[in-house]
Design a protein around this nucleic acid. Structure first.
Length: 955
DNA sequence: TTGCGGGAACTTTCTTTGGGGCAC
DNA sequence: CGTGCCCCTTTGAAAGTTCCCGCA
């Protein structure tokens, strides 16, 4: 299985580069057309991230590739055609396990990238590679009784096949090895991050797709026509409140039912239409319809989604039994529980199909691109699909084991609870049909079937593994209610669960479903805005699970603008609400406002404007920032370790101190909690010096550390400076508040102040003594010496070489008044040096040519003397000598007539005949009539009127 | 189930100012 | 004899981070 999948994936990978290109192109076109620059930014970001991912995946493939290929080859070599046969038998024995594992892998991959069009699906396939590569590890998940992996297990399978029995191991013989922990390598972490980013981009794209579909006038009109008349006017009030929405939500909830997988043949847009028609659909579709309805009622509405994205960190160990061989545990980023359950949320194929079909969105360019790419991709992936189909069939043929039964029971329970139709059997039979007529079925069709199968399987896995319950809040709407909170408010409206204004419950509901609220994004106007803060109060829990905020903000910036334009409206504030002023007071008292420039800016804008007007968007920004600043104190101590707002003293490291030590914001297990802004970093005097600061006179060290080992002795000396009594190997540390700008003795009388080593440490410009300048040029020392100008070598840092750290010098430090003089002289010197260098290299070239010619002459002489001096040689001889002469003639143009040159010339002239060939001003002319060709030896002879001839062999 | 402490394994950061031989 | 260039032999210690395990 492994080998086949590898082969499959290799095939698939061939179009990766195109995929990247097309994906980027598609993304840029799929965006909002009227904001080309924004799209370009997004597209670039997307392209960059996807490209990086592919690069990484390819890299890791190439690094692992040879091993795999070898194993593949070995298998084939040893048994001729063993692959198919053993695979056939393998199906019977391990069919379910293997097939399921593979399908899981594919499902999850698709789930990770649910909204990626086909090109990206191919990337998904690439990603799949990573996962499938370790599918034998995945076996471990499905084999309830445990399994043995690695090559050993493969050989076992083959052996077992012969005897017709299956051998399962309960445990590995070496239980101590079971406990071996393999940690993620830096490479795996990086890969996980790239996958995370790509996944985010895909989910953002999906959200925009849904958002656009919600604006469809036909769908909106149809919804309005369904709505009872008495509900139509409910929202037609000047100051909308959340309460007014309740009847609407109840009506919607009772009329639209959430079902499982939708028809993946359709685009999201048409799926939405059929959901509207049948009044049944996925939670995503139902939520989207609610958004469409609210928009139809002229309410400012967003589609909100939790981006359930692949983990930012490789989750290697979590899903694997401890018995896994460390080397095989590999990058587990595709194996996270998050991925395993992503399927129900998005129909795996629909996004791709919706774009690929290109039937609905009027964006023809997008449709063309994706269609084209679809055609292109299909053949390359057909093998993979056939394989997947094989596996599906294996599943149906294999007798059920205890684990399978259990699995199916869990599956049914899960399906019934999510109202997903059990289509598995149907699909398997369909697949069998497909298989039998595979030659006539387009790969595309097969792909769809596979996707459906995957969708179902992953439903099963999600519950079978028990990693997450179904029914998690994933999609809802946010309706802007101007009647709430004086300034208006975005109200959470979840029609799927019939909840209005339940934003404070989302976190708990998600937590109950083991779903982390890492990213909650609101979509409107083809843009998006991160509103996670509104729903997540325990930010410290998700902070480390979110991508680098700089990257994320950059990605969202153009989308946020679009969203803001679509939803914004000027809000006239009657007065600052008591609630908000209280929040601001708290934030200010905790000294945390300075952490959040943006918020401060908004506040300033808010308070300084006498008109008291603000946009909805800026008000919301303020609200979210306020939430960020007023996060409740965690109740466990661990949470303070990396909390961005709070700290307890125990988590200070040795170079940190609380200054000022207060205010105390609260207590956690008896420990006072301080604002993080009170944490000051302490440094040694030297370190401050490097930053252009010096410790003020008579400052007592904020902290004194004990040092160990050899450093003690050196430190003792330094400690004397501080006049401390305790010199027993201590380091005095100071805080920034104890420092002042560096004051260095200025240069006097052209003398550069130097340190004890006779140099100047130039860590930065600030470290330069006043009146001096750092000239970062090589070979300045001799210049300064020649001009008798005082200078100091500039030490710019250290580097480790040959097992020790060595100072790195770059240029010199001189007094400013000598700068020009030195640079002038340096320029002259450099010119002279370069001329000299050029001359030297020319002389060397000439000498080399002379050597070459001399050796040729010698060779020819020897040839003439010792080999039969046939007539044919004369021409060669002639040609050779003449070449030399022409060469020398050319040289003469460039070179002065040096003695060496004269000598060479005379030597060559002497050694050759006739002397006329040295005529310097003659350029040979080879007339066509004078040429002769020797057919037999294919040699052509060209002749000049002067008697010179050249003979050469024609190729 | 969650939190805590301790320990192990691993990663990151800090540290820091050549000298002998040889050719020119 | 002075100068410049090349090459040698490879940090390594401490701190920080992450994860596991046992216990409450």
């Amino acid at each position: 299985m492994r080998t086949r999948n590898k082969a499959k994936l290799q095939n698939q990978s061939t179009a990766n580069e195109d995929s990247v290109k097309n994906y980027g192109e598609m993304k840029s076109r799929s965006g909002c057309k009227d904001r080309a620059s924004d799209n370009e930014t997004l597209a670039n970001i997307s392209r960059g991230a996807v490209g990086k991912l592919l690069k990484r995946v390819n890299k890791s493939r190439s690094s692992r590739g040879p091993k795999t290929d070898d194993s593949y080859l070995c298998k084939q070599d040893s048994t001729g055609k063993p692959e198919n046969r053993s695979r056939e038998t393998e199906k019977h024995l391990t069919g379910t396990t293997v097939a399921r594992a593979t399908l899981d892998a594919e499902c999850c991959t698709r789930d990770v990238l649910p909204n990626v069009p086909l090109e990206v699906e191919n990337e998904g396939a690439d990603v799949q590679y990573q996962r499938i590569e370790r599918e034998d590890e995945l076996d471990g998940i499905d084999w309830e009784d445990g399994s043995v992996h690695t090559l050993k297990s493969e050989s076992n399978i083959n052996e077992d096949t012969i005897n017709g029995v299956t051998v399962e191991f309960d445990a590995l013989p070496d239980s101590s090895k079971q406990k071996t922990v393999r940690r993620a390598t830096a490479e795996e972490k990086e890969l996980a991050e790239v996958v995370h980013k790509v996944n985010l981009l895909c989910l953002l794209a999906r959200g925009r797709l849904v958002d656009t579909a919600c604006n469809d006038p036909l769908i909106q009109a149809s919804l309005l026509s369904l709505l009872p008349a008495h509900l139509l006017k409910l929202t037609d009030v000047p100051e909308l409140t959340a309460k007014a929405l309740t009847p609407l939500v109840s009506w919607f909830h009772s009329h639209f039912r959430v079902r499982g997988a939708s028809d993946t043949e359709k685009s999201f847009h048409s799926a939405l239409a059929s959901t509207l028609e049948s009044q049944e659909g996925t939670s995503e579709e139902v939520a989207a319809l609610s958004v469409a309805l609210f928009r139809a009622l002229n309410l400012t509405t967003r589609f909100v989604s939790i981006l359930d994205v692949a983990s930012l960190k490789p989750e290697i160990e979590k899903l694997y039994p401890s018995g896994q061989s460390p080397s095989k545990a590999g990058s587990g980023i595709f194996n996270s529980s998050t991925l395993m359950v992503a399927a129900p949320k998005y129909s795996p194929l629909s996004p791709a199909k919706s774009l690929a079909d290109g039937k609905h969105y009027n964006d023809k360019s997008r449709a063309t691109i994706t269609d084209k790419s679809n055609k292109r991709m299909s053949p390359s992936t057909s093998d993979a699909q056939r394989d997947a189909n094989d596996e599906c069939i294996m599943k149906s043929e294999r007798p059920k084991r205890k684990g399978d039964l259990e699995f199916e029971m869990q599956l049914e329970m899960a399906l019934s609870s999510t109202a997903v139709e059990i289509v598995r059997n149907t699909m398997v039979s369909e697949l069998a049909d497909v298989q039998s007529t595979s030659s006539n079925v387009s790969p595309f069709k097969k792909k769809k079937i596979k996707a459906e199968e995957c969708s179902t399987s992953s439903h099963g896995i999600s519950t079978a593994v028990g990693s997450r319950k179904v029914g998690a809040p994933l999609y809802w709407a946010e309706v802007y209610c101007s009647g709430e909170n004086l300034t208006g408010k975005w109200v959470h409206v979840d029609v799927v669960n019939a909840i209005t204004d339940g934003e404070q419950n989302v976190e708990a509901a998600a937590a109950a479903c083991k779903l982390h609220l890492r990213y909650v994004v609101a979509f409107a106007g083809n843009g998006a805005k991160d509103v996670t803060r509104r729903y997540c109060t325990k930010w410290y829990k998700i902070a480390s699970e979110r991508v680098n905020s700089i990257w994320w903000d950059a990605v969202l910036a153009p989308l946020k603008e679009l969203e803001s334009v679509a939803t914004s409206d000027v809000v006239h504030l009657r007065r600052e609400t008591s609630d908000e002023s209280k929040k601001r007071e708290v934030a200010q008292s905790t000294g945390m406002l300075d952490l959040h420039e943006h918020s401060e800016k908004n506040c300033a804008e808010f308070s300084t404007r006498n008109s008291f007007t603000a946009t909805r968007s800026s008000l919301e920004d303020m609200e979210l920032e306020t939430r960020a600043l007023t996060e409740p104190l965690p109740t466990n101590q661990q949470a303070y370790r990396n909390h961005r707002l709070y700290i307890i003293e125990r988590w200070l490291n040795k170079y940190q101190i609380l200054y000022p030590k207060g205010p105390v914001l609260g207590f956690c297990s008896g420990h006072p909690v301080y604002p993080r802004s009170c944490v000051q970093t302490l440094k040694r005097k030297e370190k401050w010096f490097r930053e252009g600061l010096q410790v003020k006179a008579n400052e007592i060290p904020a902290k004194v550390l004990k040092h160990s080992g050899k450093q003690n002795k050196e430190q003792d000396v330094k400690d004397d400076d501080y006049g401390e009594e305790d010199c027993g190997g201590t380091v005095a540390l100071y805080g920034q508040w104890q420092t002042e700008p560096l004051f260095l003795p200025p240069a006097v009388n052209g003398i550069v102040p130097k340190n004890g080593r006779g140099q100047v440490d130039v860590w930065s410009e600030k470290c330069l003594p006043p009146g001096t300048v750092h000239l970062r040029l090589p070979r300045l020392v001799p210049v300064a010496k020649r001009l008798e100008i005082d200078f100091a070598p500039a030490m710019v840092g250290f580097e480790f070489r040959n097992g020790r750290s060595l100072p790195v010098y770059e240029g010199i430090v001189v007094c400013t008044e000598f700068k020009d003089a030195i640079l002038e002289t340096y320029a002259e010197e450099e010119e002279r040096r370069q001329a000299k260098e050029r001359k030297r290299s020319e002389a060397e070239a000439l000498s080399r040519w002379y050597q070459l010619l001399a050796s040729l002459i010698t060779r020819q002489r020897l040839h003439n003397c010792y080999v039969d001096g046939a007539s044919s040689q004369s021409a060669v001889n002639f040609a050779t000598s003449n070449d030399k002469s022409s060469l020398l003639a050319r040289d003469a143009e460039d070179t002065k007539k040096t003695p060496e040159y004269q000598q060479e010339k005379s030597e060559i002239a002497q050694s050759d005949s006739p002397p006329t060939v040295l005529a310097e001003d003659h350029a040979h002319v080879f007339v066509v009539e004078d040429q002769t060709v020797d057919e037999e030896s294919s040699t052509r002879t060209k002749r000049c009127r002067c008697g010179f001839s050249v003979q050469y062999e024609e190729l």
